[in-house]
Nucleic acid binder design. Structure first.
Lengths: 307, 307
DNA sequence: TGATCTCCATAAAACTTCATTATGTTTAAT
DNA sequence: ATTAAACATAATGAAGTTTTATGGAGATCA
């Protein structure tokens, strides 16, 4: 590696092809430039052929000039990457659970398409993996379904997502028996979510295990397909339902006192978030808040509780 | 840009995650490493979170580490490129006229395939362009059909290539009239070559302009196609003929005192050729010499001179 | 709990490197 | 032959770097 001042001098010298002019441009004396070249040439061999009034780069000089250009580029990239005050350029890395991710990812892409300096890196992952990725600095920002208890993590409330019982559009649910009749489409968090929501909807029910299973998918984008086809019901966070294309084929059933999960933005507490990330957080919060006010797709008439 | 010693210290620190151990590995005192980090952090912001017995890189630190790796790579590439003593690695750039190029290019590819460290860059070009490319350092080595008179150029004899009158295999040439009968396939140097060779073969002939033209191509690899198809004769250097695939379809006619062009290796005289280039020159000389001893494809019985 | 140890930061001194001034050499131009 | 232009080199003072010396904060262990 080389003294950066020497590189600068060499690059200017290669442009000017004159020690004197290069020195002027560099605000140095000609002697300084001359010594820089001597230093470089001691390490690299001859870089410049000195002919009276006509300098010329040797092949070594040309190779070294390419090297200088490479280093210059690396410098620019570093500056770009470290310019955390730029709101509309740089990389945004976000890792979220599936359900909310389905909603966020299109929003991010919209943001990116109106703001081509941003580069989105998004990953769907379960809670554990989100936390790990944030702790290991692999992602700047994460979304978690719980508030983590770790001093290295800062959490701020993002939004709330109610759990929903989602049934084929044609079905009416009057009681537990209807669920047993149409069957449960399971997913990785299916049992946990079902347990929490169904105990509120149907107090004293015999448990999700007693309901026939009519399907399973761990692909969050596909979980509502079987429901839309009338093959069963499922329990999902609202955002997972809202991201589904064929809304007309499904229907959400909700109780009066809903089961609501909180979603948290999480990031490393030790270092400040780049302002582009902060502005993306604001953007997502606004968009999500706007969605909640609108069509929630929820039954106007909640079902009666079954005794 | 940054003091290279600071970079080194940072890279080692990032590996060791300990100032003390890094200093040991760097053969410095711990105080020195500490100051290097202070210098870097003054310019870049915090790079390392100091926790008791547990250092950790900040995102800035990770970005800077990537930068260090980039610079390291650029360094390695430079070293590789400047290692002119390595005979079997690096780039060979060669620029040659078409005819000999047809023979050299396959030889170079053979060499490269048995020697994967070498990278061949070959270009076909007319003499003027060869000279220009060598003078401008765009190619290390060139082949010219004449010895250039320029103090910046070193020329060494490469090989000789006789001019040949090439006719369709079925034709017999007994005199000038036969040439007029079958017609001339022209190419960029066609008139010049024809003038020189035909005045020796058929002294006192009325000149190539009086012969009907039956074709023209400036693509040296294709010039013999029309001849092979019986459409005419042409005049080419021997190497152009030797590189032709369908040898059985053509025939070379030669006189007792052939017209022989010399081919010269040329390169810039100011700087020594990398040894890989020297070894390629040697390789090509040997291969070409070997070819000349073998099947030259020339008529055993030269035609009689026509008066 | 206090002594001890490890690890990093900082200050001052010793040392090294760097830029400048001054001067020499070479070459082209007058 | 003289002059001017352009680069190299030597010497010197300024700036930067490394080391030694020291201090403080947190772990470790009796």
């Amino acid at each position: 590696m080389f003294n950066p001042q020497w590189l600068r001098s060499f690059v200017v010298l290669a442009e000017e092809l004159s020690f004197t002019r290069a020195a002027e441009r560099l605000d140095l004396t000609q002697a300084a430039v001359s010594q820089h070249m001597r230093q470089l040439e001691e390490q690299l061999g001859q870089l410049v052929v000195r002919r009276p009034r006509q300098l010329e780069l040797t092949p070594t000089g040309l190779a070294f000039l390419d090297y200088c250009k490479e280093v210059e580029c690396a410098d620019k990239r570093l500056q770009q990457r470290l310019n955390t005050n730029c709101e509309d350029c740089g990389e945004i890395s976000l890792i979220t659970p599936g359900s909310i991710g389905l909603v966020l990812y299109p929003l991010l892409l919209t943001l990116q398409s109106s703001n081509r300096g941003l580069i989105m890196r998004h990953r769907f992952a379960p809670d554990v993996e989100v936390l790990e990725a944030i702790l290991q600095n692999r992602f700047e920002l994460g979304v978690l379904t719980y508030r983590p208890d770790d001093s290295r993590i800062d959490a701020s409330l993002f939004t709330e997502e109610p759990l929903e019982l989602i049934v084929p559009a044609g079905e009416t649910i009057n009681g537990w028996d209807d669920l047993v009749r149409i069957g449960f489409i399971d997913h990785p968090d299916g049992h946990a979510m079902a347990g929490r929501l169904l105990s509120r909807l149907f107090p004293g029910n015999p448990g999700i295990r007693t309901v026939p299973h009519s399907g399973f998918s761990n692909q969050v984008g596909l979980q509502l397909e079987p429901v839309a086809m009338g093959l069963g019901f499922t329990i999902l966070p609202r955002y997972a339902r809202q991201a589904f294309k064929r809304q007309e084929a499904i229907r959400a059933v909700c109780c009066e006192t809903p089961v609501i999960d909180k979603l948290w933005f999480v990031h490393r507490s030790e270092w400040a978030l780049p302002s582009r990330v902060v502005s993306v957080m604001t953007y997502l919060r606004e968009k999500i808040a706007g969605m909640e006010g609108g069509n929630t797709g929820i039954d106007a008439h909640p079902i009666r509780e079954v005794t």
